[in-house]
Structures are given as C-alpha cells and as structure tokens.
Design a protein around this nucleic acid. Structure first.
Lengths: 327, 327
DNA sequence: GACAGGTGTGCAACCGGTTGCATTAATGTG
DNA sequence: CACATTAATGCAACCGGTTGCACACCTGTC
C-alpha cells in the first residue's frame, strides 16, 4: 500500500502531527526536523491523501465544471483553460456533460456538491430559480447567464450581435435573419435583444427563426426557413449553426457570401479553416475559463459572506469571407 | 452545514451504523427501520459524503481521464462518452489536459492517483517505461498505445491506414506521402508501419514527412514539404492536419482533390462539413471511451490479480470528396 | 424447556489526515 | 536569578463515514 503519514512519522522518528505540520504549516516546525521529515517522505514516496485532508479542512481542492455538451467546440477551449488554471492553483477539476438536459444537470450538481469546493456552471440549461436553490449548498460561478446573487462571467455577446448586424447593414443588407439557439439559452436571448434594437435603429427588417439546436444539424435544418424568410444576411446562434446553415444553403444551390451573407458566433477553430472562412463574433472562451476559476476560488476562500462578482468580457467581430454586399 | 450520518441517526432514533447499513447494505436492516431512516435522510437532505466513504472503503468512485489536448476535436467525443458511461456506473470523472507535455502528464497522474480508483490514459506521450512504473500505484487503461501488462483499448488505425493507401493506389496514385504526427505517438507509428507495408506490396513510393504537430498548424506548415516531395496523394496523421494541409495547399494555388488527394484520420465532425468534404479513416472514439471505462471498472473490481484485457476496435475508410484520380 | 441458529441493532475501532491544547526546553527581561 | 515568553513537539479528539464483533431477542426443534 501507499505510504501514510504514520509511516513517515515512524521513519523520521517524530509524531504524526509534526509530519502533518511539516507539510501544511512549515513555519511551525524546526528546519532540521522538517528536512528529516521531508527526506523520509520523499524516500517512501509519500503523498498526502487529499480526501482525508478534505475531511477535516472542509477543502477538497476540487472543483466541478458542468457544461451542456463537451463535443460542442465552443467548450473545449474553456475547459482546457479552466483546467490548466485550476491546476496552477493546485485544484483538480471534475468535468461533466449534461447532454443539454436540465434534469441531468441538477442531479450532477447534487452528487458533485460534496466532493468539490465550488462549481462552474457553463451555459446552464437550468432555470434561474433552480440555480439559486442549488447555490445554497455550494459556491457557484455561472458562465454566460445572469443569476441574482451569484458570481458571473459574461461574454458580451449582445455587443457582438450589435456589431454583426451593423456590419451587415453597412454592407447594404436591408432584411436580415437571426437564427436563434435553444430556448433556455441566455446567450440567445441577449443576441435577440441586441439584434432587435440594432435593426430598429438602423431601419432594417429582422426576422427571428428558431429555436434551433446549437449544432451543425440545427443549422442544416434552418436552411429552408432562411430561404423562406427571403433575407440576404444571417446572424447565426453560433459557428456550428452557421457552418451547418452554409452547408444546407449550398445543397440548395445558394452560395455564401455571393448569394447570402452569414455571420457566426464563437470563432471556433474550424470556422477559420472552413471555406468560406467564417465572419464571426469572437468569444474569449479561454479567458472566460480562467476568470471563472479565479472568481470561484476567490469566493471559496471568502466564505459565504462574499459579494458576488461580475466579470464581463469583451467580444469582437472578426470579418472574414462569409459576408459580402447583397446582390 | 450539510446533514451528516449522525444527524440522520438522531432524527430516526437509531445508531449511525444502522444508518450506514440502510444505505450500503440494505439487506442487513429491518425493512421498517430502513424506511424510517430513509425518510429522515430525505427530510434532512442527507447525501453520503463520498470522500469520507472512500477513506474506509478504499473506493473513491472517481476516475481520472488524461488526454493530451482537450481542444483537439478527436478527444471530446471520447471524453463525453466516457463521462456519460462512468456516470451510469456512479463514477465521477476528473479530466486533465497535459498540453502534450510528458512531464505534466506524469505529475498529473501522481497527484490524481490518491483520488481515483483508476486512470484512463488517452494517447499518452509518456514512455512505456514511465507508464509501467506509474501503473504500480493505480490501475490504468491505456487508449491508443500498447503497454505490456496493462489493459488497453486500441483503434486499429493500422488497418485504416492500409485502406487509405489502397484507396489512393486504386485511384491511380503512384507516389504518396504520409504526413506523420508527433514522435511519441503510437498511432503515428502504426500508420507508418502499415503505410510502408502497403506501399511496398502495391509497388508505390511512399515518403514520410514529419514529425508534425497534430493540429491545423502542423498541417499548414507541412504544405511546403508535401509540394516539395512531389506526391499526388497524402495520408495525414489526422483530420486537423489534413484540413490545415488543404488550407496550406490552397494558399499555394494547389487544389484538392483535383491537383492532390488528401486523406485524414478520425472523422471529426468539422471534416464532414468542410469543403471539400474529407475522405478519412473513421475512428470509433465514443465506443473507445465506453470500452475504456468498462475495462477500467472491471480491473478496479478485480484487484491487482486481474489479467490485463485488450480491446481492439475497428476503423473504416469513409470516402468523401478530398480524393480523386491524379491528373 | 434447553439449546442451536438466525436476525437486527449497537458498540467502538478504524481510514488518513488536521488542529487546539498541554508540555517541555530554550530564550529574553528586569 | 526568578519569571514570563516563545519555539518546537506530542497528545488526543475530530472530520464522516464503514465494519467486525458482541449482544439481545425471536423462532424452531427435539
């Protein structure tokens, strides 16, 4: 079996409490003793058992990261950044995928609660009520959703949607569509509000299509609706939808951007290599992952009394090849 | 604070041990008592603390999943499937990303070891020696690598590479290239061996280019080498490399498939929506994730004495639009 | 009616750490 | 030199569960 603190104590001729302190409160133990303990520990290949430590300290040094769909390319950079950042702070991360199902999400949160110091909820599909309720048991940081009294990381997709619509308008489009996302999505709502306002201000018509699945298939399926709507420009819920839409249009003989302009959201890598290269609203996903971890660990350290923090990250429009003046 | 087993014991008027048994050994407790306990537990919102349980049972009900790069689209479906499958078996999953760095990989394994019942190592960059050594502390299942004495899930990429080269040959290509992956990659070695053998048997020339980063950038950078090599067909290490390569060729005025044929590996989603749609060797990533979890949990249950299992999953060639006869 | 066997529960030790308090020795102060 | 501090370490309780063992009670058997 693996070495325990008692093995180390025995090997170095001190009490277990001294060994414990040698690791977690070095200033309380004599330097010479400490070196002896450390040497013995090294020798035995001792590593503190984090679960046992968690039992007394109440800190597991784990966090949970819950996303709707790991295979949606929007999430991996966020997961990657969060995980790397957490590791630097000596935290491990549980990753769980809810399959876009609020029930699974809730159950996951509950079983995870006892094992983690906090949970990162990314683009949750749960209702705000449910999130507030569950948040009583464990600190949350919510990404891409505004929940009262809870720390939040937002990517200002409303601003991005505004830029996108303005871009279409400046190219000369007069009738544009928003291909919306899932109904529970905060992002989709923000886009809708911003696009609606911008369209009104610019005096162009906006039709809203959806809800749609946030995937290529969702985009593919929306192609018919888009043609039906008689628009010349489209803002899609995300890049996957945009790519699927472009494919669906292609199958129907409609070319992007010559016949129709399409803008995505997220700036996922494959959009940069697709043809046409996607004009898109770039989302700072890696930064969001890091920021969320920072906020979470801050509120873990601070205890319940902490005021919830709000971080809003900028988005910007990246103009590539999928947009052009209408013909 | 959250309810503990003692709170439940008090509320239902029995000893803690009875509460414990009501949950983990129901047949040992009277049905009526059990119901009373369960009701009290429900009432208090009691959930057993898994960390505390792990301390005595030695089972954490957690597994670790270590991948080289979460944002490589090959992995998310595997992670997703593994995670979903584990959850069905009441296991949580730590996901960690090594950033393709063997040192990070080793350190991650060590810190994770105490917290998990087993580790899934996907496409490890560590040497076999290192893996065998670390495997003494915790059960491993290795995906996409053959390690002596260790349970393994392989995707038969050698067979896929053979099919790919045969496909190029049947189209009439006489000089083809393999754009290899990272040097530590087992997959890359398998592809090399299979491609070499197939080329010799078919009497065509094969040039091997690399090592390359397993990303679009790696493919982009390999474009010059490919042109230099004077080949008409290419088998790329994976779809990302293939997509990057196609992009690099495009920038140099070379069209796929009319001027050059390209085959990828993995069958990632974005390859199916790229233009030209990628001809590729499809990898059963979801099945691999599930199988790996099954193997891991089996060996966790069996203890050290278990004979390592080997699962080999089939790959197959999906012919789309990136391959054509040479001109 | 004594006894073997089975069932349901309690007791207490244990898992691997942490931490408040007590103890001892060394140091500083007037 | 007596006394108050401080530094270093040991002791033992505790975190939240699990589990081997003991005990009480009930049932059935000869």
């Amino acid at each position: 079996m693996a070495a325990t603190i008692r093995d180390v104590a025995q090997a170095s001729g001190v009490h277990v409490s001294t060994v414990s302190r040698a690791f977690s409160a070095p200033h309380l133990v004599n330097a010479a003793t400490r070196n002896r303990v450390l040497a013995a520990a090294e020798d035995l290949g001792y590593r503190p058992n984090r679960a046992a430590r968690a039992l007394t300290t109440g800190r597991t040094h784990n966090i949970g990261l819950i996303v709707a769909d790991i295979s949606n390319p929007f999430f991996p950079p966020l997961i990657k950044a969060a995980q790397a950042h957490a590791r630097r702070r000596d935290y491990h991360v549980f990753v769980a995928d809810t399959d876009e199902d609020p029930l699974v999400e809730e159950e996951l949160i509950q079983t995870l609660t006892k094992q983690v110091d906090g949970v990162l909820l990314c683009s949750p599909r749960l209702s705000n009520r449910a999130i507030e309720r569950l948040g009583a048991d464990v600190p949350f940081v919510v990404v891409n959703r505004k929940v009262r009294g809870m720390s939040t990381v937002l990517m200002d997709v409303g601003h991005g949607a505004r830029l996108a619509v303005e871009h279409l308008v400046s190219l000369g489009h007069r009738r544009v569509a928003l291909v919306a996302g899932p109904s529970g999505s905060w992002t989709s709502g923000e886009m809708r509000d911003a696009a609606t306002a911008t369209a009104r201000e610019s005096g162009v018509e906006l039709v809203i299509l959806g809800p749609n699945a946030p995937t290529e298939l969702g985009g593919l399926a929306a192609a018919a609706d888009v043609l039906q709507a008689g628009v010349t420009g489209v803002l899609a819920y995300n890049d996957l939808v945009a790519i699927g839409l472009i494919e669906g249009l292609y199958e129907r003989g409609v070319r992007v951007p010559s016949d129709l302009s399409v803008i995505g959201v997220d700036d996922i890598v494959s959009g940069r290599l697709n043809r046409p290269k996607l004009t898109t609203v770039a989302m700072p996903t890696s930064a969001a992952g890091r920021t969320a971890v920072d906020l979470l660990l801050a509120s873990v350290g601070a205890g319940d009394g902490a005021t919830p923090a709000l971080a809003t990250l900028e988005t910007n429009l990246v103009i590539r090849e999928s947009t052009a003046p209408p013909t």
